[in-house]
Every structure is written in C-alpha cells, then in structure tokens.
Amino acid sequence: MTALRALLVRDLRIALRIGGGAMMGVLFFLTVVTLMPFAIGPDLALLRRIGPAILWIGALLASLLALDRLFAADHDDGSLDLLLMGRAPVELAVAVKGLAHWIATGLPLVVAAPILGLFLNLEPAGLGAVVLTLLVGTPALTFTGLIGAALATALRRGGLLLPVLVLPLTVPVLIFGVAASNAAVVGPVPFGTPFTILCALTLTSLVVGPFAAGATLRHGME
C-alpha cells in the first residue's frame, strides 16, 4: 500500500510541477470546443443540440492525446525497469498510474465542461447530464488508453500510434456517453438506460485496461 500511494503522489507531483502536463488537457479541450463553432456556424439552437457531442469529442481527444508519455517517460529515464522490480504487481502499478493521470488530466476536463457548455448554450439539465456522463466516462477513456500507452512504449513508437490504436476502442463509451447526455435533454430513451451501460463500460475498462497494459509492459521487455 505504501508503495502504491507513493507512486500516486509521485505522478501527481510530476504532473503539477513545471514541465508537467496537468493543465494541458483542459487547454486542448477549450481550444477544440472554441474552434467547433467556426466550422459549424454560430447558430445557438444548432450548437445547443449538438453541444453534448462537441463536449464529448473534445474530452475524448484531450484525454487520449495526453496519454502517450504516460509510460514512455518512465521508460526513457529507466524508471520503468525499477517499477517492474517492485513488490507490487505490475497491474496495480499501471492502475495507479492511470488513476494519477485521470486525476491530473481527466478530472479537470469534467470541471471545465460546464463552463464550456455555456459557450454552447446548453441548458442546466443538459450541462448536468454532460458533467455526470463525463465524470463516469472519462475514467473509461483513460483506462482504455492505458493499453495504447503501454503498446506505444513497448514498441518504442510515440505520436499518433496511440490514438490510432485506441480511438476505435472508445466507440462504445462515446456512443453511450453522448446518448445519455442527449437522453437527459430530448429523450426519447430515459437517461438511466444508456447511463447504466456507460457505468458498466467504465467498470469493465477499470479491470481490463490495467491487465492488458500490464501484460504488454511485461512482455514488451525484450
């Protein structure tokens, strides 16, 4: 337990200090959402209708693009070797790193979402639904992304490989996240149905992500 807590604290510290990327995700999120109306047009009624989708796409890209250095940074400076030689299972180490990354990158997205929702003229019910679905859904994005981050590290390839590998895996999360947000505003399905499925997807990813990523890191060692 001491070891895992130390890892959590270390990763959060690195993210928050100079050179860390804690606020970068939110900034990217803000930029994407700001650009959308330039492509779509300033029609507030239209923006309100597709607002949840814009926010979800922005959050999806922001949480995945920030992931590619998660294990690569530790690999480059030799830390990953020592992390694998600890007494805690690799899967738990990976899960803790994912948790730290979500707190530093995913959680700020959830906090920023209602402010960005105002730009898109979302009504209070819609704002609440988007925030709730993002709160439940962004961990699924991060933990699915762990697999891609581990693969990119094991294969010594950064950049766009991770999104290319991971984006298809996030399709179900996107579908049910946006569906639940829309259901809260326009129906016809009740909010609970897609939201429950979203919760189930998140719980699954919390288990599958660390195991797959842990196995990848272990076998990625030549």
Binding site: L27, L30, T34, P37, P42, L44, L47, L118, F119
Partner: peptide, 18 residues
C-alpha cells in the same frame, strides 16, 4: 437572454484568451 453568443467581438476576445 444567454450568457454567450458567438458575436464577432466576443469570439475574437475568446481566441485571444486561448
């Protein structure tokens, strides 16, 4: 009647803020 409109002036300021 709304907090935000994509008015030209407001939008330019938002881009500057980013």
């Amino acid at each position: 009647g709304t907090y935000w409109v994509w008015d030209a002036r407001l939008t330019s300021v938002l881009v500057m803020f980013v």
